[in-house]
Design a protein around this nucleic acid. Structure first.
Lengths: 215, 215
DNA sequence: ATTACTATGTTGCGAGTAT
DNA sequence: TATACTCGCAACATAGTAA
């Protein structure tokens, strides 16, 4: 099976199901999949020969359903995807980094403080813990969770933007990841807040690894 | 993207993960996937251009990891597969059929009766309810559950084979699906047993639909 | 309408090879 | 050893058409 047919199986699965048939036509499918009617016709015949699908064609359409091997193939792929996506889990891992978190500054602003207490359920220690993590993995993990929005505000001097927060556990301490809302996507440096001074409470030092569970 | 690349993405996902890199070579991959080294090289370069993967090649190998779009594509497919496979659920639906269930005969044999009580937790009413169902769907649903085996036995006259049972709920009644162990795979007709006479208890009649939950 | 055949055009595979 | 180029040819997709 050189030209994998997986694409077609996925299409069919989406249209019908694991066991039901789909009543369609090679023309309809060709439009959906962006191949010619002839190609769809031929491929379906090939797939029937390979026992990937069951097929019943007539001058007024075609009825298709998955066959044994087609289902097996999809199931195997599902198993791989499931394993990888589920294991990706809800943890962000990173290396502790000293230095200038922007968050530290925010922590002390009255305009945010009240919202922290209200929406996150705690008053943050005035400072942030910063970790350097895989930006893409962090985006992925965070995207699975509903964010808590801390609204921005204005003073006569300047405007303060919104903050996007995610409830998190650091070891056993409930805290949050905060991301200044500019482009929404987290940067490599992730800032963590908590009701206590994490660094001393958890005996953390620069360069050490830390896992944060988003919840 | 005509020639879908999905196959390669699945391969890479299996080898590395959603965010980690894989250190490999086009030759290794070509052996795994049954394409030539040249084809793998070319395809990886194409996929890099399409932002499906990130790639770093050098005279001593190639480092690959998934990129944004590649992950998205896999995630979308995962969503479809998940929906379909999870919804396939644990129910077998069928049409009630009168007539000669082989099971009815077994129910009254002493060699089985004791085991039913022991292993299924009830003494079956001496008779079976038969439904005609989608054989493949039934196989699939049953395959997800651990069967209970009722051992066969011998009398001086003949040998009685094993029975494969699956705990099941019929409406609110706890019963079981039983399958004589010949080829292991269920036939179109599925036999159901329960501690009570289901047909009268549930007011069932031939031709009606019935759902059985495997548990 | 359809499906699916035949003939033609195009893509993409892989052997050889340069780096 | 690698990767990645060129290029001949096989495999594939599509147009036209028959049933």
């Amino acid at each position: 099976m050189k030209n994998s047919h997986l694409e077609m199986l996925m299409y069919l699965l989406g249209k019908c199901g694991l066991f039901e048939d789909i009543k369609s036509s090679t023309i309809k499918i060709s439009k959906d999949m962006n191949y010619s009617q002839q190609t769809i016709s031929r491929r379906l015949r090939e797939m029937e020969n390979l026992a990937l699908i069951k097929r019943n064609s007539s001058p007024n359409g075609i009825t298709i359903r998955l066959d044994q091997k087609g289902r097996k193939l999809l199931e195997d792929d599902y198993a791989i995807l499931k394993k990888k996506f589920e294991n990706a889990g809800n943890e962000i891992e990173g290396i502790i980094k000293n230095g200038i978190g922007e968050g530290k500054y925010y922590m002390s602003l009255e305009g945010y403080k009240k919202q922290f207490k209200e929406k996150l359920g705690f008053s943050p220690y005035p400072g942030t813990l910063n970790i350097i993590s895989n930006k893409e993995k962090a985006s992925f993990v965070l995207s699975k969770t509903k964010p808590v929005e801390i609204r921005g505000f204005k003073t006569k001097d300047r405007t303060y933007g919104s903050l996007i927060c995610y409830n998190a556990k650091i070891k056993n301490i409930s805290g949050a990841v905060i991301i200044p809302e500019r482009g929404t996507h987290p940067k490599e440096i992730i800032e963590i807040i908590a009701p206590v001074y994490l660094r001393s409470k958890l005996h953390l030092k620069e360069g050490g690894k830390l896992k944060v569970s988003i919840c």
